[in-house]
């Protein structure tokens, strides 16, 4: 590994949030191709069978442990119970992710029930970004960078395409009818 690669890995290990290109350039005081460096670091880590890898998350990079080591970490730190988000929260989040910026009334109309934004806001998965210029000036919600981090997504473009979802559901529908 070159000097730049070592610095990037050090930065990755000490960064609280996904590391971005401009941060690395600020630190190294030179222009870098972070994508390439990360790729090479990952190659090195794989060749040496290291238990960590660098992931592309939320428009930046994060160093994480490989999945193989999850049970060991869980055993020591007793992280066996990982309560995920509720169905209501996941539904709301998926609507926000695909229709953002969106309003509560739009979410309510799709879900057919009154929706509480409280959990998602307090978990910093969605945020308020202004108000819609419509009667009542409703709040506009959108997903946060932490949302991408939480779901291990590089960007919103990483979400499955709506068309793919539709096609998948159509296929399922046909299968059911043909049975």
């Amino acid at each position: 590994m070159h000097h730049a690669h070592k610095v990037v890995l050090a930065l990755l290990l000490s960064a609280e949030k996904p590391l971005k290109q401009d941060q690395v350039e600020l630190s190294l005081e030179e222009d870098v191709d972070l994508e390439k460096i990360v790729e090479e670091i990952n190659q090195y880590l794989a060749e040496h069978e290291m238990p960590i890898e660098v992931q592309n998350i939320a428009d930046g990079y994060k160093v994480v442990t490989r999945q193989t080591y999850e049970p060991y970490i869980d055993r020591l730190f007793q992280k066996n119970s990982k309560p995920g988000l509720s169905q209501a929260a996941l539904e709301t989040l998926s609507i926000v992710a695909y229709t953002q910026p969106t309003t509560k009334s739009e979410i309510d109309s799709i879900r057919g029930v009154n929706t509480s934004m409280k959990t998602l806001l307090s978990k910093n998965l969605v945020e308020v970004k202004g108000r819609l210029d419509a009667p009542g000036k409703p709040l506009l919600y959108r997903t946060t960078d932490y949302f991408l981090e939480y779901f291990g997504l590089a960007s919103l473009g990483d979400l499955p395409k709506m068309k793919e979802i539709e096609e998948m559901l159509e296929d399922k529908e046909e299968q059911t009818q043909n049975q």
Binding site: E91, L93, S94, Y98, I110, L169
Partner: peptide, 10 residues
């Protein structure tokens, strides 16, 4: 559709 997406999110 959104329920399906929410499952993928899960």
């Amino acid at each position: 559709k959104y329920r399906e997406i929410s499952k993928q999110f899960e």
